[in-house]
């Protein structure tokens, strides 16, 4: 379903050129759960943002089926993200002026195509992540872990084909982390949602079927023992 080929992305810092992503490539099948390890600054997040259509690579292709992501116009790219991809960011990604329920519904604001029926029910999702009594709470009234759970719930709202997660369980305690991983696993298995996860967490690694390591922009497959 997804093929990343020879993707490169350089940044210029002063007079130096930093190779954030250097000739990365791999294939993803529907229902895969892929994990990318790597130190801070190794280029994992940049690669994830290229796959998610957030930053343009210097070269290489990202193909979803027959669609070359980076050949799309900006509007088409926005629509593509809205319908087929979703994100879990490593920062608190809730809009502070919106309630938890409104934050979950945010992607629906950009879907004007009328295929909203495929969306999940926002209240059901919040109930699934244990925030049933927080529909009308504002992010400032939630703990860091609760905010992360709300962000995970939002990533499912548009029933995406693929979720790109950057340290998705970073702020969660062990118990909640296990619950969230179980939820992601069930979405992966039952709904066929593909996950590409950037993390240091070995518990997540155990639940993924493909593993990669990223080091100084170079992506290599990693066998899990």
């Amino acid at each position: 379903m997804l093929e990343i080929t020879a993707v490169r992305k350089n940044y210029k810092i002063g007079n130096d050129i930093v190779k954030a992503v250097n000739n990365a490539g791999f294939k993803v099948e529907k229902g895969d759960s892929i994990m990318i390890f790597g130190h801070s600054g190794s280029g994992k997040t940049t690669l994830l943002s290229i796959i998610g259509g957030l930053t343009r690579p210097d070269s290489g292709t990202v193909k979803y089926g027959d669609t070359d992501l980076w050949s799309l116009s900006d509007n088409e790219l926005s629509e593509f993200r809205n319908r087929r991809i979703n994100f879990i960011f490593q920062f608190s990604s809730l809009i502070p002026t919106l309630t938890v329920l409104e934050n979950i519904l945010l992607p629906t604001a950009f879907n004007k195509s009328g295929d909203r029926n495929r969306n999940f029910d926002a209240k059901d999702l919040l109930t699934m992540v244990g925030l049933k009594d927080k529909f009308n709470a504002y992010p400032s009234q939630l703990s860091g872990g609760q905010q992360r759970r709300a962000a995970i719930a939002r990533s499912f709202i548009n029933n995406p084909e693929i979720i790109l997660a950057d340290e998705p369980t970073g702020d969660l305690d062990e118990e909640t982390e296990a619950e969230m991983l179980a939820l992601c696993k069930s979405m992966n298995v039952d709904k066929g949602i593909t996950f590409i996860i950037v993390t240091h967490n070995t518990d997540i690694a155990k639940q993924c079927n493909k593993h990669f390591v990223m080091n100084r922009g170079i992506l290599t497959p990693k066998a899990m023992g």
Partner: peptide, 16 residues
């Protein structure tokens, strides 16, 4: 800035 980037990630077009 981050919020606006987030909106774009979630599907907001430039015109939105």
């Amino acid at each position: 800035q981050r919020e606006l980037g987030l909106l774009r990630a979630l599907g907001a077009k430039k015109r939105d």
